[in-house]
């Protein structure tokens, strides 16, 4: 057991500051346990989101010593405890209180994206056949737990605050999961180019680095989408070709 100091961000929309709390760390504790212990013993009204405590729900996102993490999957033994550990809310979204931010923008963005639209069922039993190999990639995207850590680190949102013109890596992953879904027949490429602002992504790969689900956001989702957008709108040969071969 060791005594560790945590600097927790306390505050609301208007003002805030770090406050120091000391608490005992025992074997196996994760950062979220420490926060809960502090909450139960010293800061009852502390605001923090969590649900599963097992990296499955994406609720407990925060910045631990400056790096974006799920608090429930960050073991105290993996961070130096001889110095104070800082825990702050995500920066790309407005603060509600303490460690809780207003992530409602993400839910609005999702609603704008054209939903899944399957082709007519074509198997005898009124369903579809799909090969595992054809869905592996999409299953990768569907692992997303909507923790919004990728949104938090993307400079387009974090520094440039372009929330109106850019949907962020999470929703490129979502877009890719729809566009590459073997049954989907909707076309979202125009939106990706225009309202979704995929062009603003300059492939820094910061999002991929923080994804707790290890989704290869940039290489597997964003770059292929960018290529599709280019094919659709900028490549004249491709365009000509498409006139004779309708999209299926």
């Amino acid at each position: 057991m060791v005594m560790a100091t945590f600097k927790l961000w306390r505050g609301d929309r208007d003002a805030g500051r770090f406050e120091d709390y000391q608490t005992d760390i025992t074997e196996g504790m994760v950062v979220l346990d420490a926060v809960h212990q502090i909450q139960a013993e010293q800061a009852q009204d502390l605001a923090v989101r969590w649900n599963c405590k097992a990296g499955k729900c994406g609720s407990c996102s925060a910045e631990v010593n400056g790096s974006p993490k799920l608090m429930c999957m960050t073991r105290c033994s993996d961070i130096p405890l001889d110095k104070p550990v800082s825990i702050e809310p995500m920066k790309a979204f407005p603060l509600i209180k303490d460690l809780v931010t207003d992530v409602s923008w993400n839910f609005q963005v999702k609603k704008r994206i054209k939903p899944f639209k399957p082709r007519q069922p074509d198997a005898d039993d009124g369903t579809w056949r799909m090969a595992q190999a054809d869905i592996d990639r999409v299953q990768e995207f569907r692992k997303c737990i909507e923790c919004f850590l990728c949104q938090d680190v993307c400079h387009v949102l974090r520094e440039h605050q372009m929330h109106d013109a850019f949907i962020g890596p999470r929703f490129f992953v979502y877009g890719a999961s729809l566009e590459m879904h073997p049954l989907d027949i909707e076309n979202r490429l125009g939106d990706l180019k225009d309202s979704d602002g995929i062009g603003y992504c300059n492939i820094t790969k910061c999002c991929t680095k923080v994804c707790p689900e290890d989704i290869t956001i940039t290489d597997n989702a964003i770059i292929p989408l960018k290529e599709r957008v280019v094919d659709e709108f900028y490549d004249p040969l491709q365009k000509l070709f498409r006139i004779f071969r309708p999209r299926g």
Binding site: D12, Q39, Q44, D45, L46, A47, V48, I96, K97, V100
Partner: peptide, 8 residues
């Protein structure tokens, strides 16, 4: 504390 996001 007050009524805002008060886990207690």
């Amino acid at each position: 504390g007050n009524r805002e996001y008060n886990a207690g």
